[in-house]
């Protein structure tokens, strides 16, 4: 269904799009109809520099299962990476 629900998160970082690297200032997250992925619904993330501007984004459309695996992987990487860097500093 088209639910028009969006979760917006402020970001700090960089992304690489068709025209090169840009500042990522916001992530728009949806679970709705994808444009391209052959699925009825997908977890969509648009990483954007300037909100409400056409064309400056890095986009993914992921299955629900893939999105949940990504969340787990991000948390695992952050956990192990943080521990690793802390160990180096110590």
């Amino acid at each position: 269904m088209c639910n028009w629900i969006v979760e917006k998160a402020e970001m700090k970082g960089s992304g690489k799009g068709p025209e090169g690297w840009f500042d990522v200032n916001q992530a728009n997250v949806y679970f709705d109809h994808p444009y391209h992925a052959p699925m009825d619904h997908s977890l969509i993330i648009d990483f954007v520099e300037t909100p409400n501007q056409v064309g400056n984004r890095v986009a993914v459309e992921l299955s629900e299962e893939s999105a949940r695996r990504l969340v787990t992987s991000i948390l695992a990487a952050l956990e192990s990476g943080t521990n690793s860097h802390m160990a180096v500093v110590t």
């Binding site: 709705d32 056409v54 064309g55 986009a59």
Partner: peptide, 19 residues
């Protein structure tokens, strides 16, 4: 009204602004 560009890019902006 959300801007000019490829339809998928325009739709992304429309979606972020609630349609």
């Amino acid at each position: 009204r959300f801007g000019e560009g490829e339809p998928d890019e325009v739709a992304a902006v429309a979606r972020s602004q609630g349609g």
